[in-house]
């Protein structure tokens, strides 16, 4: 057993070391209580649906989400009819047709979310030179994940005394460097939620962060559920293996 302890200890030390890779300078991002965090946490589908509404009505004006097919939303509780209706609200380019011309058609669930701009240059030209990043993986592409997204979306402030913000830039408490090209776009009651939830800025930020967590990792719920089963199985197997080993080695003097 002592040897085993050594082994586990060594592994723990090695992993602690790995954690060091994450330790870094910068502003402290407050952590939120997410229904999807932890081993048994799953995505709050109602919240994610509200978050989709915020994305559609607010974020999508500037931000693309081009890696995500519309059908992905079946994972937050939309049925096939609803998905077709959501898809029909978008137009995508198709073609060329028999005349050799590209044309627009209503989207189907298999299509990916269309981008608001034709290319990065067009996006910059419309946004004062700043490029609104793609949101497909945003919840995994920033240190702090969804906590950072929430902090960022609720972190717009008047610049403190002595800080001058450049033209066309905005002060955000949590953005690295504090000056960001994106204005504060979440307003109280800026959207009207179908389920009657009051659309405070915090609520919208919470919901859209939940939604972006879902689209960044649509299989997260399935992953955790499989993980619980796998680990329970392994624990039982480990018990059986240990019993076998004890039985087998009991006749060996060592």
């Amino acid at each position: 057993m002592r040897a085993l302890k050594t082994v586990l200890l060594s592994a723990a030390v090695a992993l602690g070391l790995a954690g060091a890779a994450h330790a870094s300078e910068g502003v402290h991002i407050p952590t939120q209580d997410w229904p999807h965090s932890g081993i048994f946490g799953t995505i709050d589908q109602a919240s994610a649906q509200r978050g989709f509404q915020v994305y559609k009505e607010v974020c999508a004006a500037c931000h693309s989400m081009k890696l995500v097919p519309i059908r992905t939303l079946s994972g937050i509780g939309y049925n096939e009819e609803q998905l077709k209706a959501i898809a029909a609200g978008y137009e995508v380019q198709a073609g060329p047709n028999d005349a050799g011309e590209m044309f627009m058609r209503p989207a189907i669930p298999a299509d990916r979310f269309p981008s608001p701009f034709a290319n990065d240059q067009a996006a910059r030209a419309s946004n004062n030179g700043a490029l609104p990043p793609d949101l497909s993986l945003m919840a995994k592409a920033r240190k702090g994940g969804e906590d950072y997204l929430y902090a960022f979306l609720t972190g717009f402030r008047e610049p403190p005394d002595g800080v001058t913000v450049m033209d066309g830039m905005y002060y955000n408490e949590y953005f690295p460097g504090h000056q960001v090209g994106m204005p504060n776009i979440l307003n109280p009651d800026g959207v009207t939620f179908a389920d009657g939830t009051k659309a405070t800025v915090e609520q919208q930020a919470h919901d859209v962060a939940t939604f972006l967590t879902f689209v960044a990792e649509p299989h997260m719920d399935a992953r955790k559920q499989m993980g619980v089963k796998v680990i329970l199985f392994l624990i039982v197997l480990a018990g059986l293996m240990y019993a076998t080993k004890r039985q087998l080695w009991s006749s060996v003097k060592h």
Binding site: A18, G19, A21, H22, I39, K140, R223, K224, M226, G227, V228, V230, I231, L234
Partner: peptide, 11 residues
Amino acid sequence: AAFVFFAPNYL
């Protein structure tokens, strides 16, 4: 498995 299923991006 704990890493794969519960903290796949931690490392």
